[in-house]
Write a protein that binds this DNA or RNA. Structure first.
Lengths: 209, 209
DNA sequence: CGGCCCATTGACAGGCATCAAGTCCGGTGG
DNA sequence: CCACCGGACTTGATGCCTGTCAATGGGCCG
């Protein structure tokens, strides 16, 4: 069966743009495409039947979003910042999977990466104490953040989204960040920037003191 | 279509027993085997560096435990009740995966099942309100429970484990169950049995009123 | 029968959600 | 260039939820 409509051979050559807030795909849509993020940050959003909004994960450059493990997307994907992404067809991704399976003898790394992320959020949200949750969350994404000249990390995530990820309220996130600032564990030199000033204590809090 | 995976003469012929509390494998052990549960209930346990214990999921008859997506198990697997299980070698499982991949054109269902379970716990734990968490949890496992003659479901899970799954305390679980009983949403005819007496309200609570 | 673990219940304090203002910032339009 | 506007962030006050500690009861197993 050859690819129907969207058989762009140059498919992976052109990165498409998306503006902040834009929707890549909706929950329960048939997963016909895998989105490979090239630049920017995206979020996975799950909305319960009554409108409770949870963020199931954040995606960074290099991540694959919306793997077709089942027929329909389990969450909605939205751009947090402006994006560049590439859209692979489901079949193309499936071929790559089988190739990686038979050649390397291991599963496509993106499957593990996706599951790892979901698993990690479960553990983080399962902690009690907002300080621990925030520090654990920041630790889990710190490797994906770009560092400024003076050592500050660019963190372009609205606190609303952090709250939705950590299953708490924006006010609580704000207060927790202030507390960390007053403890001299982190610093916020500029808007959207954060610096970890006391790494040891930071990790201690993340792991539950 | 002939029966797919289960044609192993020796391997799958003998189901091994395990007693309640027994460990199947430990977190961070190399995942050399996949455990197929035939009878009983098992739990996945994650223990944080400081000893905080979370249950990442429950496994029922038919489930595959410990898929080798990465090199090492991400959680410890323990028997909740007495078990019967079959242990497949990693290679054997991998072969079955590739076969299912190339023949059916879809991934091994167990991968999806595992990810589904992890995802669902994240959503459940992310809710606030213990009543909602408990009802959502029970809804998610009710299909795996066997029903008694009088319509009561066998639920052989200690409240301690339910609490560790829901990221709360055993006392809170007990109080929440009592509250549901007083609301006539559930009934507890015998120890380890539960009956849902008001399905509509039950689902309403599970979904957040 | 004794011991142990689990379930239950009560008392209490602390954390966090919620509501309500107020402030800051970037963007837009005049 | 400036004024305006809307959204995000911040802060305070308040009450409920739930975690914690402690004690009791109950069932199971040795």
């Amino acid at each position: 069966m050859h690819s129907p409509v969207r058989s762009q051979p140059q498919c992976s050559a052109i990165a498409m743009p998306a503006h902040a807030g834009e929707v890549l795909f909706l929950e329960a849509d048939p997963c016909d495409h895998v989105y490979e993020l090239r630049r920017g940050i995206a979020r996975g959003v799950y909305i319960s039947p009554e409108g409770e909004r949870q963020i199931t994960g954040f995606f960074f450059a290099g991540d694959q979003i919306g793997l077709p493990l089942c027929d329909r997307y389990r969450f909605t994907a939205e751009a947090v910042t402006d994006l560049l992404y590439i859209r692979h067809s489901r079949l193309h991704w499936h071929d790559a999977l089988i190739r990686s399976c038979t050649e390397d003898g291991r599963l496509h790394p993106s499957i593990m990466a996706e599951q790892d992320q979901i698993f990690r959020r479960g553990i983080i949200v399962g902690r009690n104490g907002v300080l621990a949750r925030i520090c654990a969350f920041l630790m889990s994404i710190v490797d994906h953040l770009s560092m400024d000249a003076d050592g500050a990390l660019l963190l372009p995530l609205p606190q609303i989204d952090i709250a939705a990820y950590l299953a708490t309220s924006p006010e609580t996130v704000c207060r927790a960040l202030r507390q960390l600032r007053e403890m001299h564990v982190i610093a916020v030199p500029r808007r959207d920037y954060i610096a970890i000033t006391d790494r040891a204590r930071f990790e201690a809090i993340a792991n539950g003191i």
